[in-house]
């Protein structure tokens, strides 16, 4: 019996009068990789940003309905607690350019003013970087600036930064769309490792990626959740005609 970690109930999101996410109900099981796919402008990124309440940072944005994290409504929690439990990785790698690689990993502690003993910090940095398969590459250059790394390494550094906060859920907003194919496959391999400890929700344009990395796939179209099923079933035997059209490339 798999337990549900994130559940949305009648979730709606708006930008001003623009209704971008329409009545989404979805249950996300723990320690799984969930791919959220759909054409551009279908509301998948907005839905993702709703989960850790980043959506409301945009002026005029509002949301209704519930997002439950372990049966607790995140809309009732303080956004800061929500974001500590639900980490996020963005489309473009965005390490803090003023911090070293080491400090970037523990940025969530350092910049929040949480003091940790040196050996604890070292441990977090090594563990987090190991989890994202970056430790071997950067262990001799931890004091260099984060922007010194290549794009793919920077993205893994950003994943390490999110992992270091020991969240329960990790959100990825098109995490590989700014990366080259080799870096992309490195990051994709990571997802399999990371799902042992975390629940991953990945927004992607890329159907092949969804098929490769996810256990379940949600298909969004014009703000609606059209279909949500096991990835294998969805790609071999979609129920909805719109899903079928999208998968077969009739529109994108």
């Amino acid at each position: 019996m798999e337990s549900t970690i994130v559940k949305s109930v009648d979730y709606n999101a708006y930008f001003g009068d623009n209704h971008v996410v329409k009545n989404v109900n979805i249950e996300i099981p723990k320690n799984h990789v969930i791919a959220v796919m759909g054409p551009s402008g279908c509301g998948k990124t907005t839905f993702l940003r709703g989960i850790n309440r980043m959506h409301e940072l945009i002026p005029n944005a509002k949301a209704t309905g519930k997002i439950l994290l372990n049966n607790e409504d995140v809309m009732q929690m303080h956004p800061i607690f929500v974001r500590l439990k639900i980490g996020m990785v963005f489309q473009r790698p965005n390490p803090f350019p003023n911090l070293s690689i080491y400090d970037n990993v523990i940025a969530g502690y350092k910049l929040n003013g949480i003091k940790l003993p040196k050996d604890k910090k070292d441990q977090i940095v090594e563990e987090s970087l190991t989890k994202v398969a970056l430790w071997k590459e950067v262990k001799d250059s931890l004091t260099k600036k984060g922007s010194f790394l290549s794009g793919g390494q920077q993205q893994r550094l950003c994943i390490a930064r999110a992992v270091a906060m020991a969240p329960e859920v990790l959100l990825f907003d098109e995490p590989t769309s700014a990366l080259d194919p080799i870096s992309t496959s490195t990051v994709e391999e990571l997802f399999h490792e990371l799902k042992k400890n975390y629940t991953l929700i990945i927004v992607t344009h890329n159907m092949q990626q969804a098929a490769r990395v996810s256990d379940r796939t949600a298909f969004f179209y014009v703000g609606e959740l059209v279909e949500y099923d096991d990835t294998k079933k969805m790609f071999t035997n979609p129920k909805d005609i719109r899903t079928q059209n999208y998968i077969t490339g009739r529109f994108s």
């Binding site: 850790n52 980043m54 940072l57 800061i80 607690f81 929500v82 974001r83 500590l84 980490g87 996020m88 963005f90 473009r92 965005n94 390490p95 803090f96 350019p97 940025a107 969530g108 910049l111 929040n112 950003c158 930064r161 999110a162 906060m165």
Partner: peptide, 13 residues
């Protein structure tokens, strides 16, 4: 870039 601010907010700052 706004992405820097978002990185901070996403870490619960």
């Amino acid at each position: 870039p706004d992405s820097l601010k978002e990185a901070g907010f996403a870490l619960g700052m």
